[in-house]
Amino acid sequence: MKQGRFISLEGGEGAGKSTQLRALGDALRARGMEVVETREPGGSEGAEAIRSLLLTGNADRWSPRAEALLFAAARADHVEKTIRPALERGAWVLSDRFLDSSRAYQGQGELTDADIMVLHRIGSAGFLPDRTLLLTLPEQEAAVRARRRDGDDADRIGGRASDFHRAVADAFARFVVNEPDRVRAVDASGAAAEVTTRLLANLVDLLP
Rank of each mutant, 00 (worst) to 15 (best):
A76K: 05
A74C: 10
G32E: 07
P85K: 10
V144R: 13
T136I: 06
A49E: 03
T196Y: 02
T132N: 09
R29P: 01
P41I: 04
T112W: 08
W62F: 15
S8P: 00
V79G: 05
A114I: 00
A142P: 14
H165E: 03
S18Y: 09
K81R: 15
G14C: 08
V183Q: 04
A47Q: 01
S189F: 03
G123A: 15
L87I: 08
I83L: 01
A68R: 13
N58P: 13
Q3L: 12
E37D: 02
H78K: 03
V168L: 08
L135K: 11
R131M: 03
R5M: 09
L135M: 10
T56N: 13
Q3T: 15
I122G: 02
F98W: 03
A47W: 00
A30P: 05
F172G: 00
L24M: 08
H165L: 06
S95C: 15
L199F: 10
R84C: 03
G90N: 08
F6A: 12
G109C: 13
T19I: 11
E179Y: 12
L137F: 14
S101L: 05
G43K: 00
L111R: 14
G43F: 00
G57T: 04
A142E: 07
I83C: 02
F71Y: 15
L111Q: 12
G107D: 00
A125M: 00
R84N: 02
L119R: 06
A142T: 11
A23C: 05
L199P: 14
A173V: 00
R149E: 11
A154W: 08
V186W: 04
T82D: 05
E34S: 14
F127E: 04
V195A: 11
F127G: 02
A86S: 14
S18V: 11
V144S: 06
D163F: 13
P85G: 11
Y105H: 09
D115W: 07
A91D: 11
G159Y: 15
T132M: 09
V177Q: 14
A193H: 13
A185G: 05
V118W: 08
A72N: 08
T112H: 09
A161M: 12
L134N: 02
